[in-house]
Every structure is written in C-alpha cells, then in structure tokens.
Design a protein around this nucleic acid. Structure first.
Length: 572
DNA sequence: GCCGTTTTCGGCCCGACTGTTTTCAGTCG
C-alpha cells in the first residue's frame, strides 16, 4: 500500500468523523497524519515492516494511528473506516465540498431531510425544504444552490504557471489604483505550489473601500462573493476565487506571514509563540496580558521575535523547516541564476519547433553555458524518433556547430526510450558516443509496479545512461504517475552513480518536491531540465527551480549548476 | 488522537464574514 493510499484513508476517516461531529481535534489528528504521510520521503509500509523502526517516531503518529497503519498495510483495509462507512454513505461527503456547507449543516441536511447526494441537495433547495430547517433561511438556501453550481465547475486547481499569469495581471490592475500602498500576492501561489486553488492578495491602503471597488471593476471579475471592511472575495469568469485583504501598514508583515501559510506551518508557529507567552495573528505579535504589540511591520520581524529565520515561502509546509531552523541547518535554496545548463531539449530533428542552432543561441541568451539536445529515439515513431544512423548525423552537425558557436556548448545527447519489454531503444555502442543520455518511459505506462520499476532500474544500470527523465510520468491534473517504487529507483540511482531529472515543464514538475527531498536524502543529484520543444520552452526553468526549492534543494544538490566540465567528471 | 522545559491531563491558532440570530453558530482561510 502506498503512502498516498494510506493518506487517502486517513483523509476519508477525518471527513467522516467531522461529518459525525467528532471532537475537532481528533479530526485534525487524522488530517495531520494524512498530510504527514503524504509528505513522507520513505515508504510507510517499509517503516512498518522494519523491526528496528517505530511508526510513532513520525511526528503526529501515536500508538493508535500506528496500529491503524499496521492494520492497513497488513490487510489493505481498516475496521474503523468500514464501521464509519456503514453509518454514513460515502456520497454524503460530497456535500461537505459545497462552499458554505461544513460538517454541522451537512449533518442537519442528512439527518432532517435525508439528503445523501448533491442532486438530492439541489432538489431539497428547489422545493424550499431547506429554508424551513432551524438555523437555515432563504438566503442560505440560495447560497447553497450557488455553491452547488460552483462545486460542479470549480473544485479544480490551476497550474502554478497559469496562476502566475492571473497574478501578474491582477497586480498590474491593482497598482493602477492610487489608494493602494504595499501590495503582495500570498497563499499557495507565493509558496510556489505546483497547483493553486485560489489567489490571495494583501494590500495596505488609506482607503480600503476604494481598493475593493477597484478590484470589483477588474475585467475578469464575474461575481463578488463577500465583502467586508477589510476583506473581499471575488470569483473570476474562469471560476478562480481571488481573496483580497487590506491591512494597516504596521500589520503588513504579520499579515503577509499569516496569509502566505501554509495553514499547518502557521499552526506550528502559533503553538511556538503561545508557549513563549506570545500571541500571533494577522495583525502582529503580542506579548502579555495587555497584548502589547512587539512585531508586525515585516515578516522578518515576526519570525525574529521567535528566534526563527524568515523561511523562504517554498519551505513553509510544516515538513522539516522548523527542525532545520532549530539545528541551524536551514538550506540555502537554489536560485534560477545558479543554473548553468539545460539537459533536456528537443529540436526540429524530432518534435521540436526550432533548429539546434536556434535553441543553442536562445539558451546562450538566457545565460546558459551548455545545452543538451535530447531528441527522441526511434521507438517514438510518431515524432520521427532517431535511429542510430540519423542520431550520428545529428551529432556530426553538432560537432560542426560547436566549432562555430561561442559561449555555449551543445551536448551530443539523446532521450532514449525504455522499451516495454525491457532494454533501451538504442544500442550501447551508440549511447557510448553521447555526452549525455536521458532515459524515458513513454510506453507501457500501465504495466505493474514491479515491471515498471524493473525497467527503470535496468536503465539506471546501463553504464551509458546519465539520468532518468520525468521519472513518474505524471501530468498534473491530467494523468496520474505510473506505478513505480521510487525508493528502489533512488537506491539504484545512488548505487550506479546516476542522476534524476526534475522536469521543469509546468504540467510535469516531475520529480515532485517530496521526491526531490527523498533523492537528496539518498545522495542522488537532481538535474533541473526544461524539456523545451521550442525556444520559449527554455523559460520553464524557473518552474523547475521553484519546485527544487520546495524540495529543500541547494545549489550543491542540483548537478546542472556545475560547469559542463565538472558535471562530466561527476558522471565518471 | 497527539503531545509534554506548563509532561499522563488538558490543552490543541485565530479572526472575518454571513445569516439568522436577539447574542451567536457555522464556515472559511
């Protein structure tokens, strides 16, 4: 059973308990455990099986949850979940996803009106039975109907790269408003999460109402969801929710910290503050009975009163950052300017849109010193994948080009397919002539975990392979990762002195942040590569670097921060 | 259900907004 599957069970238990009106802290314990397990860098099943390890070593896992994990791993099911599902139909949980409906109201709808599905809920609203319930009214009924429409179309997140376009446009719009002072995006966008569910903006202003009027007048605003004195939420035409908070200058740092999150990070921070007799909220840090303000102007200040560093937003996930800070080992995260080369690109020789020279010059223009042309091998027939003969012709052209080009080196490379039946799509004698080889799994993605893991490990054992490209094959919001034992793969990479790619394409970002951290733990170097199929594709590097930062990677953890000469030496 | 330099019980982050209330509960982030 994978960590994600175990985490999903705990999440479901939390939902069901919440629906039943259980102690909210008990619910939180299950949710925390689910999140922790999802973020874990090693297989929980392995830890459970290891006689020298205790599951209770994991933060947030006590005896009870440890037993439940053991039960899950051993039997594939959990008695408690089965009992809960016997009491509450699973379809009821969808009702909790309707904006404005939480566990209390959902329970009333279920108990009083026997609402068990979203369709049933709509029916109950339309027949005006909901407004007759205690604590409900006509307005609530209308807002539930609205919420049902939103739940139908929304619920999806958008790629960070798409969120970034919205953010830049909204920032530009809000800056035109004279009343706006300081202005910053916050939330999961600022933390660089690969997908973003809504956008948060924070502003200071002499005239908050004026700023809100200005946001309401933004072209893409379809609906104002709520508006108070300091807070406003709108929905854009595409369904994306945008929250704006207006705060006084002396609170801007505290508010930026607060609204950047993550929620779990903030809960830990507040707990630490409380133990020191301090209180943190979005208005500042306060001490003592009289709640004397002691910080709030800047984020630095807020963290400093707790003797903490101002964590890079990418690390604020309540994973390792507080432990690192305590040990004085907060990593100096990699930056875009550290990147010296791009090790995965395509050209017109296969499915790219630009020539080798065009790609090389564009890379040089972006400050890179080397670029690997990794066109597809022949198995990818659809795009005219290269056989040995054409590949050698391409490499001859690269040799010629390198004699002409100044300031950039083009590497003779290939993206070789790991074949369905095992083995690689090109012979060893060809691969041996390459400067850099990435191996990819494009076909047979539905094979078993054992077979896919075996194919990838076999590739890592080939002496000419340098790295595995997009190692899980996932496409965000489109295609799940194929079944693969990442622990085993990382061990094989380490044993064979190989590297793993972090594919920077905004829809891939593969390896993800957690797997990057795991790779680092195993001592496996990461290469951040764009997989560019056109010149503009080279600009995706920043998405990859951001994901690497979320994985806690430093310049030293990423091999393409090295010169090509040094990287080559590392490959052996 | 977890956790402990306030340690085996009694806490567990904190405030804005809305709707249905006559003083607050529910939801959200």
């Amino acid at each position: 059973m994978t960590n994600a599957e175990i985490a999903a069970v705990f999440e479901q238990v939390a939902d069901l308990l919440e629906f039943k009106g259980a102690n909210p802290f008990r619910v939180r314990a299950y949710r925390n455990a689910g999140r922790t397990i999802d973020d874990l860098r090693e297989s929980l099943a392995d830890v459970a099986a290891d006689p020298n390890r205790e599951l209770t070593e994991i933060d947030g896992i006590g005896k009870d949850l440890a037993d439940k994990i053991v039960e899950l791993v051993a039997t594939g099911s959990m008695e408690m979940l089965d009992e809960l599902l016997a009491e509450v139909p699973e379809s009821v949980l969808a009702i909790l996803r309707v904006p404005g409906l939480g566990p209390k109201r959902a329970a009333v709808l279920y108990n009083e009106l026997n609402v068990t599905t979203l369709d049933g809920l709509r029916e109950a609203c339309l027949s005006q039975r909901v407004r007759q319930l205690k604590g409900f009214g006509a307005k609530t009924e209308a807002s539930i109907l609205k919420g049902l429409d939103i739940a139908a179309e929304a619920g999806q997140r958008i790629l960070w790269a798409e969120a970034d376009e919205h953010v830049q446009a909204i920032l530009a719009h809000l800056r035109q408003c004279d009343a706006v002072g300081q202005l910053r995006p916050a939330g999961s966008y600022r933390r660089g999460k690969e997908t973003v569910g809504d956008l948060d903006f924070l502003a200071t202003a002499d005239d908050p109402a004026g700023v809100m009027d200005h946001l309401a007048a933004y072209d893409e605003v379809a609906d104002v969801l709520l508006r108070g004195d300091t807070k406003m939420s709108v929905r854009l035409t595409g369904g994306l929710q945008v929250d704006l908070r207006v705060v006084p200058d002396e609170s801007f740092g505290a508010a930026l910290q607060y609204f950047t999150g993550s929620k779990a990070h903030n809960i830990m921070l507040r707990g630490m503050a409380k133990r020191r007799g301090l209180k943190i909220n979005e208005y500042g840090v306060f001490r003592g009975e009289d709640e004397r303000p002691i910080a709030g102007l800047t984020e630095d200040e807020v963290y400093a009163v707790l003797e903490l560093p101002c964590f890079p937003p990418e690390l604020r996930e309540a994973r390792d950052e507080f432990n690192w800070a305590e040990a004085g080992e907060l990593p100096q995260l990699i930056e875009l300017k550290d990147i010296r080369g791009d090790l995965h690109t395509h050209t017109t020789w296969t499915d790219g849109a630009a020539t080798i020279e065009e790609m090389a010059l564009a890379a040089k223009q972006r400050g890179l010193k080397y670029i690997a042309v990794t066109d597809h091998s022949k198995r990818v027939a659809m795009v005219g994948g290269l056989n040995a003969e054409r590949l050698r012709r391409q490499w001859a052209e690269i040799d010629k080009l390198n004699r002409r080009l100044k300031g950039i080196t083009v590497l003779k490379s290939v993206e070789v397919d790991m074949l369905e039946a095992g083995g690689l799509d090109l012979e060893d004698d060809v691969l041996a002539e390459a400067d850099w080889v990435v191996a990819s799994l494009h076909y047979g993605q539905n094979q078993s975990r054992e077979r896919i893991t075996g194919r990838v490990i076999e590739a890592l054992e080939n002496p000419h392979v340098s790295a595995v490209a997009h190692p899980t094959g996932r496409m965000l919001m489109r295609r799940k990762a194929y079944e693969i034992d990442m622990e085993a793969v990382l061990k094989a990479a380490r044993a064979n002195g190989k590297m793993m790619e972090l594919n920077a394409h905004p829809m891939r970002l593969d390896l993800d942040d957690v797997a990057c951290a795991a790779a680092k733990n195993h001592g496996v170097p990461i290469v951040v590569s764009t997989d560019a199929h056109r010149i503009e594709g080279l600009d995706a590097m920043r998405y990859g670097v951001q994901q690497a930062r979320r994985g806690g990677l430093t310049k030293d953890d990423v091999a393409n921060t090295l010169s090509w000469a040094k990287l080559k030496k590392m490959l052996g």
